[in-house]
Amino acid sequence: MSIISTQNLTKIYGSGDTAVTALDHVSIEVNAGEFVAVMGPSGCGKSTLLHLLGGLDSPSDGAIAIDGKPIAKMPDNALTELRRRKIGFVFQFYNLIPVLNAVENAALPVTLDGVKPSEAKKRAIEWLNRFGLGDRLNSRPDQLSGGQQQRVAIARALVAEPNLILADEPTGNLDTRASDEIAALLRKVSKEFGRAVVMVTHDPRIAAYADRIIFLKDGSIADETILEPQNGKNAAMVAGMMKEIGD
């Protein structure tokens, strides 16, 4: 069953002479438990696509359905609730609240949803334990390494048990080792916990962890490829395809 389904998704910024078409009739489907990477050169529209999928921005034209529900015309309150319950976000700069500790940060979405704080914390601790942060529960973001912060962010994305995780350059701010850890973790999220994961990245090595890669260029889908699971050659192949598209 498809978690994401878009038809002719179009986003135009500005108007008249200065209008820029960021997305041009993009139609995609993502299924439950699938790990999809979105790649493409700078300005190809990959971030715009992610923002539209997350209900952070509204499309100029076309339709998006998340979990079967159309969201293109949803009012702000409904969108807010959708983000809180159905979607988990992971950002490049982690975006943890600096004044809250790991547990409190991870618990945020459910706390915002009105779940009892003790219950919210319990759930957050479960996820943090799964991600190997059991000994850093009370650390504030500034006391954690980049990789650790991103793991807290992923725990936060999962704490409300959404079916969809959207990750915007989740490794963009990390070194190679931490990047691999995070990419592997996202794969685990999709495979072990059955969530759909959509990840925007420009790093072929990270994209190689995905099941499928969508290549965007100038706002439209330029190519799409299904990867063999973990055969060790994917990274090189993806890099080749990127070159072909013209990155």
Binding site: G54, L56, D76, N77, T80, E81, L82, R83, R84, R85, F89, F91, F93, N95, I97, P98, L108, P109, L112, D113, R156, A160
Partner: peptide, 16 residues
């Protein structure tokens, strides 16, 4: 701004 935007992204309503 960033913290607030993030909270909104995570599902905090305007009222929150």
């Amino acid at each position: 701004r960033r913290d607030i935007g993030m909270l909104r992204a995570l599902g905090a309503s305007r009222r929150t």
